[in-house]
Structures are given as C-alpha cells and as structure tokens.
C-alpha cells in the first residue's frame, strides 16, 4: 500500500463518521471538563445509555424518534442520579463514581440475565432495516471520492452528513450557552467554586445543569453510533473510550467552542495514520499488538499534551498560563 493511500485512508476516517461521532461525544465532555471543570471519567456511560436506548427501541419496533427520546431521557435520569449525590462533594468523588457507574452499566448490559433486553454479551444486531436510518438518504447509490483510497459509499456519506450536521447544531447551541452569563458562571465554577458561591451562585444547580446537558449530548452521540452501525454490543463502551474522548477534548483545546471538532479530526487522522504505518512496516505486527500500540500512542499523546500543550490546538497560551493561578 502506498503512503499516499495510507494518508487518504486516515483522512477518510478523520472527516468521516468516526470523526463526527467523536466530535459530538467530545462536545458534551468539553462542557463538563473544559467549561465546568467536572471530572467526568465515565462519559462513555452516557453514550451507552443513548446507544442502548436507540437499539432497544428499534428492537421493540419503535421509530428512531422514540429511540432518541428513550436514550436521551435515560441519560438525563442517569445524570441526575449521579449528579445529585456527588456534585456536592469534591471532584475526586465524581471522577470515581462516574467511572464506576459507566462500568456498572456496561456489565449489566453484558450480563446473561439482561439478555432479553440488551442481548447480553452478543448485543443487539441487524437493526439497520428496522431503524431505517438510511431510507431518507437522497444520495444516489454509488461511490464518491478521489482515486482508489479516498472513497465514500453513499451510505457513508449520508451518515457523515447527518452526524456532522448534528455536530454543527450542537456546537452552535453550546457556543450560545457558554458565551452567555450562564456559561460565565460555569467558567467561574471551574476556576473556583467557593468564589462563585460567595457571589451568590447556586453552584450545585449550575453543575447539575452542565452535567445533565453534556450527558445528553453524549447520549445523542451513542444513539447515532447505533444508527450508523445498525447494531450494539457491550464491548465497545469501556473506560478507554472515555479516555480517548479526553484526548480529543484536550487535543482540540478544552474550554473552546470548536475544540472538540478539531480534536476529533486530528485524533482520528493521527491514529489511523499510525495504524497504516504499523500495517506496512518491513516486519509483521499482529493485529492485537497494532491495536495496543495505537492505544499506547494515545496514552503517551494525552500525557504529552497535558504537560507540554495543555491549551491544545485552539486554546490560548495566555489563558493556560493563567491557570497556574
């Protein structure tokens, strides 16, 4: 495989559905971590709830809209359940409770007794026709692109279009929110909760609003992933998914409006490039090793970013320097 086609494949993933769905999920996390300073390390739990909401609804024969409704309603309930007890406490508690509850959700979905509802470890498959996600597509059947590698099918294009469209809508909505006095309070809480409290802000309520809203955006991303894949399985919703989203948020610039989008595109480009390179070395790298090396690169990247460029691509250096108090 030529280096050019490796680049083309990486770009395809980056601007394709993968990139878009990560951008959407990361937008929610950015509201939590970037703007409010909430240490939500179980964001994948919100995605899971959105995904299973959609899949289970489709399995019951309900429409996509009901699926979105169920997924988002469940994410709001989850946000309130986790937020009300823990947002009063120090951030460490939130970190541990969120990561634990995301794991609980995954294990419950995976467990044999849950099979009638979630399909257990096999998940729920062959939903594509029931979901009818691709039915409204106006894109004529065929493939579109340049050359042999940078090619999208009509279905891929449709999924991209819908997902990036939603990313844009959500981002503009968040842009309006974080630039309002409401967003100003969130930033104040991120900087110093006690100061915000001393100025008469009901800190817990603001945190809860941010937590639930960001969680619902995560659920939306989860539902879209199911729409695109036509199936759901429990193996996907593991803690490293959340960590990848952190990498996306920080890479793009935590607490910036367009950061999650830039972060998601760059993240997937780099990761897929690494994959392409690993598969085309002069010696063989097994698939499991390649996967592990990819994740190791992500881990090292996350550390290096935090240490050497915490403001990410879009954040301002000056603002970051200010964070040292």
């Amino acid at each position: 495989m030529s280096w050019l086609s490796i680049l083309a494949l990486a770009l395809q993933t980056a601007i394709g559905f993968q990139g878009a769905s990560y951008a959407l999920a990361a937008a929610g996390l950015n509201l939590h971590f970037g703007y409010t300073g909430l240490s939500n390390f179980g964001h994948v739990g919100f995605l899971l709830v959105g995904a299973y909401g959609m899949a289970i609804s489709a399995d019951q024969g309900w429409s996509i809209w009901v699926g979105f409704g169920v997924g988002i309603a469940a994410s709001v309930v989850l946000g309130l359940l986790l937020g009300i007890p823990t947002l009063r406490l120090r951030g460490d508690y939130l970190a541990i409770v969120t990561i634990a509850s995301a794991e609980i959700l995954r294990l419950v979905a995976n467990a044999r007794p849950s099979e009638p509802l979630t399909g257990g470890s096999r998940g729920i498959g062959s939903l594509t026709s029931r979901l009818g996600f691709f039915d409204p597509s106006f894109i004529p059947e065929g493939t579109y692109g340049v050359g042999k590698s940078f090619v999208f099918t009509d279905r891929q294009l449709w999924a991209m279009l819908v997902c990036w469209g939603l990313v844009l809508v959500v981002t503009l909505l968040l842009r309006g929110l974080v630039r309002s006095p409401w967003g100003r309070v969130l930033r104040a809480i991120r900087e110093d909760e006690d100061a915000a409290r001393a100025l008469g802000k009901n800190v817990v309520v603001f945190k809860l609003q941010s937590f639930v809203l960001g969680g619902a955006i995560g659920a939306l991303a989860g539902a879209l992933i199911v729409l695109n894949a036509g199936s759901v399985s429990p193996t996907r919703w593991i803690a490293p998914f959340t960590f990848a989203l952190y990498t996306v948020v920080i890479l793009g610039g935590a607490g910036t409006v367009w950061g999650p989008i830039v972060g998601a595109v760059v993240y997937w480009f780099v990761l897929d490039l690494a994959d392409g390179v690993l598969n085309n070395l002069w010696f063989d790298v097994s698939d499991t090793s390649a996967g592990a090396i990819r994740l190791a690169i992500m881990g090292v990247g996350l550390m290096a970013l935090m240490v050497f460029r915490p403001q990410g691509i879009l954040g301002s250096k000056k603002e970051m320097l200010a964070s040292g108090r």
């Binding site: 930033r187 104040a188 900087e191 409290r197 008469g200 009901n202 964070s323």
Partner: peptide, 21 residues
C-alpha cells in the same frame, strides 16, 4: 449562596479571583 443573594458578601484570606477569566 443564599446569604450572598440576601446581601451578605464575603472575600477570602487567600484571594479567590478567577484566574482564567
């Protein structure tokens, strides 16, 4: 925060300005 809204506002010994604002 309720007391603050009622007009009792405080400052802190170690100033709590909001650095990144």
């Amino acid at each position: 925060h309720v007391l603050a809204q009622r007009g009792m506002v405080r400052t802190f010994q170690l100033t709590k300005t909001l650095g990144r604002m």
